[in-house]
Structures are given as structure tokens and as C-alpha cells.
Design a protein around this nucleic acid. Structure first.
Lengths: 248, 248
DNA sequence: CGGCGACTTGAATATCTTCAAGGGGGGTGG
DNA sequence: CCACCCCCCTTGAAGATATTCAAGTCGCCG
């Protein structure tokens, strides 16, 4: 890819770039550029702003902030959460590299949730107005973004089903399986990884208390399905875990 | 609106039309045409297919069906639901007139859920390929559809919060408040209406058993917040109900 | 080294579910 | 037109699951 190589070179000259371009990003096959032609990727590249790393605990945006952009996660993990009227927090999702966060702000031009880095993270900012403009001329991009939003919908609905129908064991199993699958998608180990989120966040996300999450981990360890060492997870029996997640 | 009147007349000549056009639809201010100019509405009109009524219990589409279109509800109520691997059903949403159903199919070109009429219903079918094409030339339509999808995301996330954090009373109260608000949006009574869904569907949607839903209704009746007569609901104290929904 | 936050574990309690039984309304067929 | 049946809804009592409260451990950062 000659054009990509040129891009790479031209960008390297700028000391403020933290990553070069979508064209040579390790994640481009699962991220927004997916299914775009090389020349279209370059166009997309031009509207994307790569910012400096986001420190652990810092916010990408907050509930109520004006909506300007969606963000592709490049490194690290984010959590999205809402605060209820009475001050409680609800984690609505975790976002891994290659995934898009911030689409909840489109509807009202205001972010409906906050996004916070669970560990040092990096994101690509995609100004939504530019994305809309580009989408009008690039049908594939328009389609792909529709698909990404639709995927967010179906994933939320899966979580709804999980919260509505499943026991504590099933919920935790489903989360671990999900993290495992998303790791595999990025060519990382599906069976050994570090959970970037705390037990509190997990419980919050799954509608359980910390204590319950902890107990479930212990139980699964006793069943030789998992090996848990603080945040380090090793899946010993992925099949069993999947069966658990589906309510066996 | 002269163009609308013409439209109306020209359509009336066709005996198979069940409704005339977006231009004179009672719901156009809350439905897809929202924020479009009159001439754009006409263009939208041309791609929309108005079908004959959908009988109670019949499916608009089923999980696994190829995705072709999204649908605007014109009359009646639909429920969307998924079937889990072990055969259980999860209701993921109720759809009232003016609302769009079927967006979950965009992501994989296959419907991720089924949609079924809870009472005799009518829908406007919007072929998605045409909508995409039109969106490329009508920025407002593109934007509005992005917004509708984003709204579905934020609504799903609200349901997630409800399922994750709220007691049975709060869940039921929230549903009633939601139905009330959606009625008001259509200029119907916010305090008196007929619930088109069964207790089973309500429980399924809210992650509760039928019995629990029934008990909650009874309790609220005793508290003089609601008057419940089978499916007929009268809200006696909307404030109290809202406070309940927010966890008072 | 000290302290604080995150995690684990146990016992008591609450909420919701499950199981069981009965009432009522609408539709169908006699 | 009435009777019957089926489905939906309601209510009660027993039981299960997760929460709450409480205490203690572990690891990390200052």
C-alpha cells in the first residue's frame, strides 16, 4: 500500500502524533475503517483527531456534556455509566480497543452517559459532523456506522436479557465470556487476561453487589472453571463457562 | 399545505391504500418525517410501503429473518422479543404509534429479534436500502435516523439501569410512567389508558414474574396511586408514581 | 511501615420466585 | 342466548436467591 506508506511518513514528521493513521492501525479490521477502500480510509483519517493518552480515572466526556464526537478506543479500557437521580451509578458498558463509544449522545446532542478510563487509554476522536458529511458521500461508511449503532442496540438488548432472566452465576459467566471473545477478536489470548474493571464495576454492570460477584468467582474457582488471582483471570474450561453463561 | 392536499387526493384514487401519506399523517411530527421539509417528506413518502393491518398475534418479522426494512408503527402496539437458547422469551421493547421498530436488524442484515402485534396494528414499511440512498442526499434525514437509533440506545440503557438497580415497584412504576409519557406525546390522555400488553409481557419485559407484577398493581391500588381494572389503567397520582419510579 | 482501598467470607435478612389454588372475562359452539 | 372452556389475572404460603451488615485479609501507594 503505497498511499498508506506515504501517509505514515508524512505523519511521522509531527511530534504530536501518538499514532500514525487508520491505514496502518492494528485495529483497522475491526474498527470504523472496516470495509472501506484504501482511498476512503485516507479520507476518514483526515477527520480523525488523535489525542494524547487519557489517564486512569479521567473522563473522556461526562453526562450532560455537549455532543461533538464519537470515539474509537485505541488502547486501554473505558467504562460508560449513568448517574441516576438519587446519585447511584449504573455502568452501561465497557469499551475495548477497536470499539466505538459515545453514540448515545447523537440523539439529543448531549451525552447521556459519562465515559471514564479504567486504565491509561488512548482514543481517536471522530467529530460527528465530519462523519456525517463524509457518510453522505461514502455509502459504505454510512452503512458501517449504521451497523455499529445497530450492534450497540443488539448488545444492549443482550444485556437486558441477561439482567432480566439470568442468575448471578450466569451473569458473571456471560461477562467473562464476552471479554474473552473480544480479546480473541483482537488476536489476544481468549483464556488468559487481566480484567481492567473492579469488582464494583462488574457488579454494577451486572446488577449485582460486590459481595455476590466475589462469591461467584470463588464458586467458579472451586468448580475448576476459572483461576482467579485478583484481576488476573485464567479460563480453565471455556466450554463449561459458556454453558454456564447460557444457563446450564 | 397545497402539495399535501394534492398528495391526499391522488392517493385516494387507489383502493389499496390504508393511509394516505406522511404529509398528512397525524404522527408525522414525532415519526421519521420529523424536521423534514415538505418536499423531502414527499420523497420519503415515495419509498414507504403502507401495508394492510397486522392482526393481533401475527408477526411483523421473526428473529433470523433477512433484514430488509424498518417499520414505523402507525396504529396499535408491537412487542419485540428475543428467544434465548433454552427457549425462554425476553421482551426487549414495546412499540407505539410513531415509533420505529426493526433497527436491530441493521447490524448483521438479519433480525436479532421478533416483532409481534399485541393488538391489530398497522405499520409503514421503510425499505432500508432506499432509506440509505435517500439519506445520502438528505442530511436531515440521515441525521434524524442516526438520532432515532441513538434514542433506541439510550432507552435500552435506561431499561438496563431499571433492571439492574430497581425494585419490582420501581420497575412497574417506570413502565407505567413511560406509557403515560408516550401517550401524551401522541396527544392522548396521560392518566387514563388501556395497557395493550399482558401481565406476562410486562413481567417478562421488566424481569419479574406475573405474580409479582400483579402484586405490585394491587399494592399501588391500595396506595391510591393507580386504579387498575384489568388492562384499564387510571393514574390517580402521577407525581407519586414518578417518585416511585425514581426510587422513593 | 502504615494506612487505605479493594476484595473475600460469613451470618442474618429481605425480596422475589415458585408452587398452588381460585376467580373472572371473552369467545366459541351448542 | 347460554354454557362452557380457556386464558389471564389475582392471592396466599413456602422456599430460594441475592442483599445487607459485619468483620477480616490482601496488596499497593505514599
Amino acid at each position: 500500500m503505497n498511499t498508506q506508506q506515504q501517509h505514515l511518513d508524512s505523519k511521522k514528521s509531527c511530534a504530536h502524533d501518538f499514532q500514525v493513521s487508520c491505514g496502518n492501525c492494528r485495529l483497522n479490521s475491526i474498527c470504523l475503517p472496516f470495509s472501506l477502500e484504501a482511498r476512503d480510509v485516507d479520507e476518514l483519517d483526515r477527520i480523525i483527531q488523535r489525542s494524547k493518552p487519557l489517564q486512569k480515572g479521567h473522563h473522556l466526556y461526562r453526562e450532560g456534556d455537549g455532543f461533538q464526537s464519537v470515539y474509537a478506543v485505541r488502547a486501554g479500557t473505558l467504562k460508560a455509566y449513568q448517574t441516576t437521580d438519587d446519585g447511584r451509578e449504573q455502568v452501561t458498558g465497557f469499551y475495548f480497543p477497536g470499539e466505538i463509544v459515545g453514540m448515545d449522545g447523537i440523539s439529543k446532542n448531549v451525552h447521556a452517559s459519562s465515559a471514564k478510563a479504567l486504565e491509561t487509554a488512548a482514543v481517536c476522536e471522530i467529530p460527528f459532523a465530519s462523519l456525517e458529511r463524509l457518510s453522505a458521500t461514502m455509502p459504505q461508511l454510512q452503512r458501517h456506522f449504521f451497523q455499529l449503532m445497530s450492534r450497540e442496540i443488539t448488545e444492549d438488548q443482550q444485556l437486558i436479557t441477561l439482567l432480566s432472566k439470568s442468575s448471578a452465576d450466569e451473569r458473571v459467566a456471560a461477562l467473562i465470556v464476552s471479554v474473552s471473545a473480544r480479546n480473541a477478536r483482537r488476536k489476544l489470548s481468549a483464556t488468559q487476561f487481566r480484567l481492567s474493571m473492579s469488582r464494583v464495576d462488574i457488579g454494577n454492570y451486572l446488577g449485582l453487589t460486590v459481595e455476590t460477584v466475589s462469591r461467584v468467582f470463588s464458586r467458579m474457582q472451586k468448580m475448576d472453571v476459572l483461576r482467579v488471582d485478583n484481576k488476573e483471570i485464567e479460563i480453565l474450561d471455556l466450554d463449561a463457562l459458556q454453558r454456564l453463561a447460557e444457563g446450564a
